[in-house]
Simulated scan of single mutants.
Amino acid sequence: MKTLFMLLLFCHVSSTVKHSLKYFLTATSGVSNLPEFVGLALVDEVQVGYCDSNIKTVELKQDWMRDFMKDYPKHMEWYIQMCFSEQQSFRANIVDLKQRLNQTEGAHILQSMDSCEWNDETGEVFGFHQYGYDGEDFIALDLQTLTWNALRQQAFTTKLRWDADKDRLEYNKYYLLHECPDWLKKYLHYGRSFLQRTELPSVSLLQKTPSSPVSCHATGFYPDRAMMYWRKDGEEHHEDVDHGEILPNHDGSFQISVDLNLSSVAPEDWRRYDCVFHLSGVEDHIVTKLDKAQIRTNWVSPSEFPAGGVTGVVVALLLLLVLCITGLFIWRKNNNGFRPANRVKCP
């Protein structure tokens, strides 16, 4: 499994010519303090547009995207129209799903992702479009057969109805393999100075408690084509290592963590370990020695814990529990969510 992980990570690092345009749409029912509908647009995993049912407009998140819309005002009108038309469609779909699944109460969430990818070296284009409901994959478009795949038994009725809509199927195919890549290429032209930049991260050693694994955490790097690993005596080390995913930051940069469990390592052997970060396209590596004095932690020993702090800890734990429960409603992008059901190369 570790060998497979490193192989996949290497492939991710080496794919320096693949670009993507993704749209994430989310509708909620019975979820308080959240808009009923949210839409996100991302270019190469960088958020460029946002709309929701509360603000009733489209917000552009990058200066270069604003420049683009000034030159293509009709495209901005398309974004606004799409936001409101999809809002109505999603509202109807979530009502229909609740009725068919006999869900009369509770919180429910419907999400979709449609995306195109373009390899600027080979010219290959891929597209995929899929939906998730209540945190699970629901239905996905198969561009090879131009039919919908029901990913849950409850989606079979939807599949039959959507398969019968031939005009919609043909439009989805044309959009994903032609229109979407054409706009992606235009976006990349306007955002090239931003999207083609390289930024090195700050790297820190973190540890929750003295018995917890030591986390090597890198944040603020760009692009997301990077790898990080632990070494022992100068050799790559896999035992008791947990590799985290590359995650986005709010400013368009990325972060990653790799944990090392030192429970079976003698303190005098810690100096044999170091953490290595490598950003694709950058020759130098960032090497961080495992030095106990450099580990950052917010852990306080019981003897140093103030009695008056107990209430604050209880409140913090309750807030964390609420956040965790809220997070369960979000369709995850890893493992079970947003997996490309199929890819079709544009002829």
Rank of each mutant, 00 (worst) to 15 (best):
V241C: 03
L4I: 09
S301R: 12
S53K: 01
G123Y: 06
H189R: 12
E199W: 07
P267G: 01
Q88K: 14
I94C: 06
Q103I: 07
E136M: 12
V203A: 09
G312L: 03
D52Y: 03
S193V: 08
V344T: 11
W230T: 03
L320A: 11
I94D: 05
R343A: 12
L279S: 01
A41R: 07
H129D: 12
L101A: 05
I286C: 03
Q144Y: 04
V315T: 12
L290N: 11
W162F: 14
D224N: 11
L151T: 07
F24E: 09
V31W: 02
L290S: 12
S263F: 08
R66N: 05
S85Q: 10
V58M: 04
K345P: 04
M1D: 12
K2S: 13
E121I: 07
G327H: 11
T28K: 10
K292H: 14
E77H: 08
T219Q: 15
C11P: 14
W78K: 15
F138W: 04
F138I: 01
R296L: 08
L21N: 04
T26A: 07
F24K: 04
S212E: 13
E235Y: 10
L290D: 12
C51W: 09
T147G: 09
S193E: 11
D71R: 08
S204T: 07
S301W: 05
Y72P: 11
A316R: 07
F338W: 15
G135I: 03
L195F: 00
L323Y: 04
L262N: 01
Y23A: 09
G191F: 01
S14H: 07
A218R: 03
G106N: 06
E121M: 13
A41G: 10
W183K: 06
T288L: 13
K166M: 03
C275W: 07
D63P: 13
E121A: 15
G132M: 04
T104L: 06
K74H: 11
V58G: 04
N33F: 15
V95P: 00
S20R: 10
A140S: 08
W148S: 06
F68M: 12
T26R: 14
Y222P: 02
V282C: 05
A150C: 08
N336D: 13
D96M: 07
G132P: 02
Y79L: 14
L328P: 00
L8K: 14
Y190E: 00
N33E: 14
K166W: 03
Y190R: 00
E117S: 12
Q111A: 15
T122A: 10
I139R: 07
I295H: 01
F221E: 03
G327D: 12
V58W: 03
L110I: 02
S204D: 11
L34G: 01
L290C: 10
R192K: 14
L317M: 08
Y190A: 01
Q196R: 10
H278I: 00
K173Y: 09
A266F: 02
R332I: 03
S20M: 05
G309N: 15
I94M: 05
A164R: 08
H285E: 15
E236M: 13
W299N: 02
P223D: 09
F128E: 03
G191L: 01
Y175Q: 08
N93K: 13
S264P: 01
F138G: 04
S15E: 04
Q47H: 12
K333C: 06
F37W: 02
Y50A: 06
A293N: 10
K61Q: 11
Y187P: 00
N342H: 10
L34I: 04
E36R: 12
V287R: 02
